[in-house]
Amino acid sequence: MASLTPPVSIRHGVRCVTANGVNVEEVLLAVGQEIGYENISSASRMNKAVVVFLKEENHVNHLISSGIVGSGDFVTVLPLVAPTIKVTVSNVPPFIQSNEIERELLRLCYGLCPHMTVENRDRLRVRDLLTAYYDLDYHHNPRGSSYWRNRVMKVASKYTGRGLTFSVANKKDFLSELEDDFGLGTSDGGELPFVTIRTKLGHKYTMREEFTRDGLSLERFLDDYFAGRLKRYVKSEPVPERNSGAVKVVVAESFDDIVNDPDKDVLIQFYSPSCPHCKKLEPVYRELADTLYYDPHIVVSKMNAADNDVPLGYDVRGYPTIYFAPAGKKDEPIRYEGGRELKDFLKFLKREASHGLVSGGSKDEL
């Protein structure tokens, strides 16, 4: 037992309790994700409950209204109606200050259901990540924000330990990304959450079924994901009906068929229609394709990277970016860093090609 005086008024305190009891760490993580760790003053264990003191009274009303979720269980949050003088300590300091919370629990905070923002998205996306996008705004819509997050958490608790992290995000903060990466319009999903999965390898999936309040649609989506039944979302232009030109046109949907053909050496140029450097290169690139048109082992191709997803293994940060995907080694594409004259490309290909180059029906002697 220890006698401690709370550092703030009793009006700043809340009591968190479930039928099975909760621990300090789980409560602090849940409270911190709901209102921000910086708004927690201190916390303590009291019998089977956890008492948390907050820096502002308005956060007390928020937590009482919304409740929190700890380890998948809903935690009731009650006002602290009487001062806490005696505190039962169980292998932890009776009070954990906010700076210690951030230091000790940072490694755990991403494992529940964090609020993904533009600032922290890169840190979250180092793992396979499910995100529910909706009108998440704890200042103007605290009840709705907590309601949907709790629904996601309830379902997420059934899939723990399977390598998927869960998060929620404000749809308005990611509208352009959702449109560019998932092909979503501004009206898709309406007021209901829109759910996506983005793996650390860059694979993307969308839940097309409407998010139901009982969570069953999300469970079906996750069951299909873990069973490998979902089709990956790929942003792609239509596959050309005719593709008989010397320079083969590649889109995301045809990338595997053309560039990843295991029997072909493939030169692939990633370009943007608006890029002046790409336009300057076009006649040279077409001449290269014409020169090698009769070579049965090599393909000269191009893909509009502005309107198609670029596959993993290809680092495209500017245009044009050119790679060589050798036959039998498609997981080891070689970035082309040479000059942009015909002789430069031919010299590179003669060095890297799996077969001698064929030009106009005869072996190239370069």
Rank of each mutant, 00 (worst) to 15 (best):
N170W: 00
P193D: 03
E219A: 11
Y233L: 13
L222M: 10
L222R: 03
G163S: 09
T199V: 12
F226G: 08
R213K: 13
T165P: 00
E177R: 05
V234I: 15
P193M: 05
E177P: 00
G215V: 10
R149H: 02
L201Y: 12
I197T: 06
E191V: 04
T199M: 07
S146Y: 04
F211P: 02
R149F: 04
R220D: 11
H203M: 13
L222C: 05
D180G: 08
V152N: 04
R220G: 11
K231R: 14
A169M: 05
M207P: 07
A227I: 01
R198Q: 15
D188N: 13
T212K: 15
W148A: 01
D181S: 14
S187T: 12
V195Y: 00
L178R: 01
Y159D: 04
S167G: 08
F221Q: 06
A227C: 07
M153N: 09
K171Q: 06
M153K: 15
G189K: 02
T165E: 12
F226E: 05
I197Q: 02
S176K: 13
D181M: 11
S217N: 13
L192S: 13
D214N: 15
S176T: 14
N150F: 06
T160P: 01
Y205N: 03
R213A: 08
K171E: 00
S145C: 07
G215R: 07
R151S: 03
F221I: 11
F221G: 07
F226Q: 08
G228Y: 07
E219P: 03
K154Y: 04
S176L: 13
N170S: 15
A169G: 03
R220Y: 12
D188M: 06
D214F: 08
F182A: 05
D223C: 08
Y147Q: 09
L230R: 10
K204F: 06
G228E: 07
L201G: 14
R208N: 14
W148M: 06
L164V: 08
A156F: 01
T196C: 13
E210A: 14
S167F: 01
G185N: 12
T196M: 08
E210H: 08
G202A: 09
R213D: 15
R229N: 15
M153F: 00
R232C: 10
R220F: 10
K154N: 06
L230H: 05
S167I: 04
F166T: 08
A227N: 14
F166N: 03
G202L: 08
E209Q: 14
T196Y: 00
L175D: 04
E210M: 12
E179V: 01
L184A: 09
N170P: 03
A169N: 01
E177Y: 12
T160E: 12
L230A: 08
T186W: 02
L178V: 05
Y205Q: 07
G185M: 02
K235I: 10
A169S: 12
Y233R: 15
L178A: 02
G190A: 09
G202W: 08
F226R: 11
R149S: 06
K231W: 00
D224W: 03
V168R: 00
R149I: 02
K154E: 15
L184I: 01
T165G: 05
M207E: 01
R151C: 02
G183Q: 03
L184F: 10
L216W: 00
S187P: 02
G163P: 07
W148T: 03
K154I: 10
I197P: 02
Y233Q: 07
G161I: 10
I197D: 05
Y225E: 04
Y147N: 02
S157L: 01
A169V: 03
S146N: 07
